[in-house]
Simulated assay, not measured.
Amino acid sequence: MTIASDDVQRDAAHYRAMRDIVEQMRERIPGKFEITKEGIVHDMMAPGRPHELTAAQVRRRLEKEMPEEILAHTGTPDVELGSEGIMRHPDVMVIAVADMEGEGSFDPRTLIAVIEVVSRSNPDNDWVSKMRDYPLLGIPVYAVFDPRTGSGAVLSGIHRTPDGPRYATRKDFMYGEDVTIADWTISTDDLPRYA
Rank of each mutant, 00 (worst) to 15 (best):
Met45Pro: 02
Met66Pro: 14
Ser187Arg: 02
Thr180Trp: 00
Asp163Trp: 06
Gln24Cys: 01
Arg61Ser: 11
Ile3Met: 09
Thr76Tyr: 01
Leu62Ile: 11
Tyr142Met: 08
Glu52Arg: 11
Gly138Cys: 03
Phe33Leu: 14
Glu38Ile: 10
Gln9Ser: 13
Ile35Tyr: 01
His159Glu: 15
Val144Phe: 00
Thr185Gln: 10
Arg109Phe: 00
Arg193Asp: 14
Ile29Asp: 10
Met131His: 08
Gly150Ser: 10
Met131Cys: 11
Leu71Met: 04
Val114Asn: 02
Ser105Asn: 13
Pro135His: 00
Val144Ser: 08
Tyr167Asp: 11
Val8Ala: 10
Ile70Asp: 02
Gly48Phe: 00
Ala72Trp: 02
Ala56Lys: 06
Asp7Lys: 12
Ser83His: 01
Gly75Arg: 14
Tyr134Ala: 12
Glu63Trp: 07
Ile29Leu: 15
His159Thr: 14
Glu101Val: 08
Glu38Gln: 05
Ala13Asp: 12
Val141Met: 01
Ser187Ile: 05
Glu34Asp: 05
Leu136Trp: 05
Val141Pro: 01
Glu65Gly: 13
Val22Thr: 03
Asp99Asn: 07
Gly104Glu: 00
Arg109Ser: 07
Tyr15Pro: 02
Ala13Gly: 04
Gly102Asn: 09
Lys64Cys: 07
Ile86Asn: 00
Ile35Asn: 00
Ala17Ser: 15
Lys171Gly: 00
Glu52Ser: 12
